[in-house]
Structure formats: C-alpha cells, structure tokens
Measured scan of single mutants.
Amino acid sequence: MGFKLLSKLLVYLTASIMAIASPLAFSVDSSGEYPTVSEIPVGEVRLYQIADGVWSHIATQSFDGAVYPSNGLIVRDGDELLLIDTAWGAKNTAALLAEIEKQIGLPVTRAVSTHFHDDRVGGVDVLRAAGVATYASPSTRRLAEVEGNEIPTHSLEGLSSSGDAVRFGPVELFYPGAAHSTDNLIVYVPSASVLYGGCAIYELSRTSAGNVADADLAEWPTSIERIQQHYPEAQFVIPGHGLPGGLDLLKHTTNVVKAHTNRSVVE
C-alpha cells in the first residue's frame, strides 16, 4: 500500500471513529477524501466538511520552486461564519470567499490569524475590503508590521502568557507558548472536538522541520505538551499544512522538532 493511500485511509478511519463516538456532533463529509496538494491548482481553494458547521479550507501556493498546501478553518456561528487564517495570499483568499459563498452561503463576518507569517495573514486586506472584521493577538499584529505583512485590524486580548485561553464565538483560542513562531495560536472547536494546530503542528508525513527561522526550538516541545494537557479530548487535529489526523500529530511534531534540534547540535 502506497504512503499517500495509507495517509488518506488514516484520515478516513479517524473521521469514521469520530462519527461513531459522537453521532450528534459529527456529520463528516462523505463526498470524498481530504484534498491534497496535487489536486488543488494554485489560485483555487477546496472546502472539506469535518463536522456539522465545521470545515477546513485548503489552498496551495508556490514557494521556492515548489507547491505547498495550506489549511485553515471555518466555523459556523449562528447565521454567520468565523474564518481562521487566510488562504495564503490575496488571490487565494478572494477564491476562498467565493467558494464559501458557493458552498455554504453564509457571510464571513470575523477572521482570526493564528500567527504573523504570510500563509496566515496574506489576504487580510481582501477580507477587510469584503467587510470582514480581522483579528490577531497584539504580538501577531506587531510582528506582521515588522515583517511588512498585512496586519489584522483588531487585537485579541488575554493571550499574552503561555497557557492563556479565551473564548471567541464558537471557538476557544489558546496560546501554548512559542513553537513554530513566538505568537502562534491554537484554535479548538469544543462542539466538535476539532483542534486546529496551525503551523505549530505537523502532518504525519512530514519528517523535516522546514521553516524554523522564527521558531523557538527549545520551547516548542513544552508548548505541545500544554496543548495535549489542555485538549486531551480532541479527536480531529488539523495541521497548518497537509493531512489531518488525531492527537498523534502532536507527538510526531515533537519528535521531528527534537530530531532537528539534535542534528543542529551535532553539526
């Protein structure tokens, strides 16, 4: 069995187990497998329904001669939608809004960016022009300005110390501490036991640490421990890039980060 097929099978099995364990909360999309990078042309966006009122959005972007996937989250909030992270750029984010209108038909009224990198804030200006209120932590807003990236308009308070959590509509926002970046936030959907790890969490097929220019490698494993301790009931975990899975993604990420750190020390 090929690795790609095995990865998709694991996603399907995880979703099936969740649907059985929580039949009222989960209505997993039966329309197909989780979209992969090879299936999404740059400039297009796919939506994948995880649970009743919960979707991931998947886009792709060219970077350094390669094409990478990027995940975000959409959560229903009454007759409105909360968006977590842009679709990595203005063109993708405009396509995301169009796809949401086509498939869901509810307005996106608020959006949260989970850290300051372009795959999370690139497209904020498109959201703002569409009347979406954009939010991020003060740290993310400051770092985005320093980096020359787009800056969300509103500040999220109460997320300055490791372990801080605040309720934001249908989700809980959690600051686990520094990891992929010093400002990275985690998003949890309690009604569906869905954990969105953003770039602080890796997919299972990833074996290298990737972009760690703004990471705190020493603190990252401790931050992941905080996530595990705060959300032990999480059933569906979405990484910032690639295929979702279960809580095993947290341990896998820790292993990859520690291996990278150990290699760096040896070198």
Rank of each mutant, 00 (worst) to 15 (best):
D79H: 09
V171E: 04
G122I: 04
V67R: 15
D164I: 06
T254S: 12
Y48L: 13
F174Q: 00
H154W: 13
N92F: 00
N92D: 03
F26T: 11
H260S: 13
K4S: 10
I227M: 10
Q235F: 07
V265S: 12
E44P: 07
T14I: 09
V108M: 04
R226S: 05
V187Q: 01
R76C: 06
A179H: 05
R120Y: 01
V266Q: 14
W55S: 01
W220V: 00
I58C: 04
I186H: 03
I84D: 00
E225T: 11
L96V: 04
L73A: 05
A90P: 13
L195K: 02
E225L: 12
A178K: 12
T14G: 04
Y202C: 06
V132D: 02
G197I: 02
W88H: 00
Q228I: 11
G163V: 05
L96A: 03
A25I: 13
E147P: 04
P190N: 07
A192Y: 07
D118W: 04
V112K: 04
R110N: 15
R226A: 07
P176Y: 00
S31P: 10
L5E: 14
G65I: 08
Y188S: 02
A25D: 14
G210W: 04
I58R: 05
D77T: 05
A234G: 03
S155L: 11
S162H: 14
D85W: 00
Y188K: 00
A259Q: 12
L82S: 03
L10D: 14
A165G: 11
S208Q: 11
A21Q: 14
L10K: 13
L106V: 11
S70E: 04
G122Y: 06
F168K: 02
K4C: 09
G197S: 04
L143T: 01
A213Y: 08
S70T: 06
E145L: 14
E145W: 12
H260L: 08
A133T: 13
N71R: 02
V166S: 07
I224E: 01
S162K: 14
S139W: 11
F168P: 02
H57D: 03
G89A: 02
E145T: 11
G78Q: 09
A90Y: 08
L173W: 01
G240N: 05
P107H: 10
H241G: 00
G131L: 06
L81R: 03
P170E: 05
S191W: 14
R110A: 13
S27I: 09
L9D: 13
H241Q: 05
G148P: 02
G32Y: 14
H230C: 03
T109M: 11
E145I: 09
K102M: 13
L156K: 03
I50N: 06
L9I: 15
L47A: 04
E203Q: 06
K258C: 07
S27E: 10
E150K: 06
L6I: 09
R76T: 08
S191H: 15
G122T: 07
E39V: 12
A165N: 12
V212S: 12
D164T: 11
Y135Q: 01
A165D: 07
Y34Q: 08
S223M: 01
D85Y: 02
L185P: 03
T182S: 12
T93C: 02
Y68V: 15
L195F: 08
I40L: 15
D77S: 08
S139H: 12
L82T: 08
T222P: 08
D118P: 07
V121S: 01
Y34F: 15
T222F: 14
Q103H: 15
A87M: 00
N71C: 02
S223G: 02
E80K: 09
V187Y: 03
L127C: 00
G78T: 08
A200H: 04
S155E: 14
G246A: 08
I227W: 02
S27R: 13
Y231I: 03
A94D: 10
I104K: 01
H241C: 00
G163A: 06
G177S: 07
A209N: 12
R120T: 01
Q103G: 11
G177I: 03
L24K: 13
G131P: 04
P23T: 11
R128W: 07
G123V: 03
T93S: 04
N184V: 00
T134A: 04
L97M: 09
D52N: 12
S22Q: 12
S16T: 14
W88N: 00
A95N: 14
F116Y: 09
I74D: 02
L73T: 01
I40V: 15
A98P: 06
I186G: 02
N262R: 11
Y196S: 01
A200G: 03
E101C: 06
H241K: 00
N262P: 11
R46E: 08
L243A: 15
A165Q: 13
E145G: 13
L47R: 03
N71Y: 04
L127D: 03
P170L: 05
H115M: 02
G131S: 08
E44V: 10
P138L: 09
S137M: 12
G131F: 03
S155W: 07
R120I: 01
E233L: 12
E39S: 12
D216C: 03
V132Y: 00
T261N: 13
N92G: 07
G43K: 06
D164W: 04
D119Y: 04
R206K: 15
H260I: 09
E225C: 04
L5Y: 15
H230W: 07
L250G: 00
G197Q: 01
V265I: 12
I186N: 06
L83I: 10
L96S: 00
P176D: 00
H230A: 15
K8F: 09
P221G: 09
L83T: 02
G105P: 07
T14D: 10
S38C: 07
L195Q: 00
P69W: 15
V37M: 15
N262L: 11
E219L: 07
G245Q: 02
G89D: 04
A15V: 08
G148E: 07
E157N: 14
D125N: 12
A259L: 09
A234R: 00
P176R: 02
P176W: 00
G245R: 02
A51C: 06
R263S: 13
G246T: 12
G131M: 06
G65T: 09
N149L: 14
E267G: 07
L217Y: 04
I58K: 04
A19L: 15
P170S: 09
A51I: 07
S62Y: 06
V171D: 00
K102W: 10
T222K: 12
I84M: 07
P232W: 07
